[in-house]
């Protein structure tokens, strides 16, 4: 498959960097032009979630609920019942965490079509610290029936994801990081919800990521090409899980390394592990945030200390690969 990546995409000095939240914001504004029943709801973070792009164009379809996430969820549910397509937008810890039970009751249980668009997912939030670095949102959405959970790999994919979410049914979560990360996909790169992307083929190890970690995995695969043949999968949709693509890859490689900016307990790695435990158990390493709260710091410092940058991820991957060869 030709994924039509940007030119010299593996060179992080020349690749464009932009935050997923910006891509999501632009996507909502573009979608609003053609979808007149789309409504955006914000909780005092419209601009920092980049939903102001929509709000400026469509003030009559923008609802500002103030710092009140439970109401954000409840009003969204009411709009959805009444036939609108609400996009509820705020920081991930508040969007998914603060009002989890109202979300469960008013949106998931009746299967209302509401799209949740976050910013501030993961340690890529930076110096705001652990209160704002959401590393449990995949766990909290994956366990709710009816949810579709999408974690775009870059700003361009985030834009496509918020647009694709419109045509789905039921609750949809589009998970976005705050920090600028490499944009290696292009408008021509295909994207289909629920269809994992094998971005690079290999035979020794399957490396599965979501979010910006996919970019590191592609770089690592290239750097280690002479030693290990790594197959890289962008698992942008965690629910529903594309088990078929994972199974095909794992039957070939026999080993899985997962990488994500999320708690390893309950994250994408857990989801893949559950699937493989039931279908095709193989040795696995789940890399991510190791069940702890991080701290304030620049994103680059956080990535380094918590081993979520390319070097830290490579180190973990090599440890696993060597152990498995013993």
């Amino acid at each position: 498959m030709n994924y039509k990546f940007s030119e010299n995409y593996l060179d992080e000095k020349t690749v464009k960097w932009s935050p997923m939240r910006e891509g999501a914001g632009l996507g909502m504004a573009e979608l609003g032009e053609i979808k007149k029943d789309m409504v955006v709801l914000g909780a005092d973070t419209l601009e920092s979630c980049r939903a102001h792009h929509f709000a400026k164009k469509f003030p009559e379809r923008t609802i500002q609920v103030g710092v009140a996430e439970q109401n954000l969820i409840g009003v969204s549910a009411g709009l959805a019942y009444a036939g609108k397509v609400p996009y509820a937008v705020t920081y991930a810890p508040f969007l998914i965490g603060r009002a989890w039970e109202p979300m469960r009751t008013t949106i998931c249980y009746p299967n209302n079509h509401v799209v949740f668009v976050s910013s501030h997912a993961g340690l890529a939030t930076g110096s705001d610290g652990p209160t704002h670095q959401m590393t449990e949102d995949i766990a909290l959405t994956n366990c709710l029936p009816n949810f579709t959970v999408i974690c775009p790999c870059d700003a361009e994919q985030a834009k496509k994801a918020v647009k694709a979410a419109y045509d789905l049914k039921g609750p949809v979560y589009v998970r976005n990081a705050r920090e600028a990360t490499p944009v290696f996909t292009t408008p021509d790169t295909p994207f289909e919800v629920g269809k994992a992307q094998v971005l690079r083929e290999g035979k020794d190890l399957t490396a599965i990521g979501h979010g910006y970690m996919v970019y590191w995995l592609l770089q690592i695969a290239e750097e280690l090409a002479n030693k290990i043949s790594i197959e890289v999968i962008n698992l942008h949709t965690i629910k529903p899980l594309d088990g078929k693509t994972i199974l095909k890859s794992v039957k070939k490689t026999g080993k899985v390394f997962t990488a994500e900016d999320h708690n390893v307990k309950g994250g994408m790695g857990s989801v893949v592990a559950q699937f493989l435990a039931e279908n095709y158990p193989v040795p696995m390493k789940l890399h991510g945030v190791y069940d702890e709260f991080a701290e304030s710091g620049s994103v680059k410092d956080l990535w380094k200390k918590y081993k979520l940058d390319k070097e830290g991820t490579k180190e973990k991957l090599l440890e696993f690969f060597k152990d498995e060869r013993k």
Partner: peptide, 28 residues
């Protein structure tokens, strides 16, 4: 459960959530 009895407007139970939804209906 309005998915079983569609003549209801919403599903409900957990308290304090109806007024938000009613606001959504009114805005729509």
């Amino acid at each position: 459960n309005m998915r079983r009895l569609p003549a209801l407007e919403t599903s409900s139970g957990p308290l304090g959530e109806g007024l938000s939804q009613a606001c959504g209906f009114a805005l729509a």
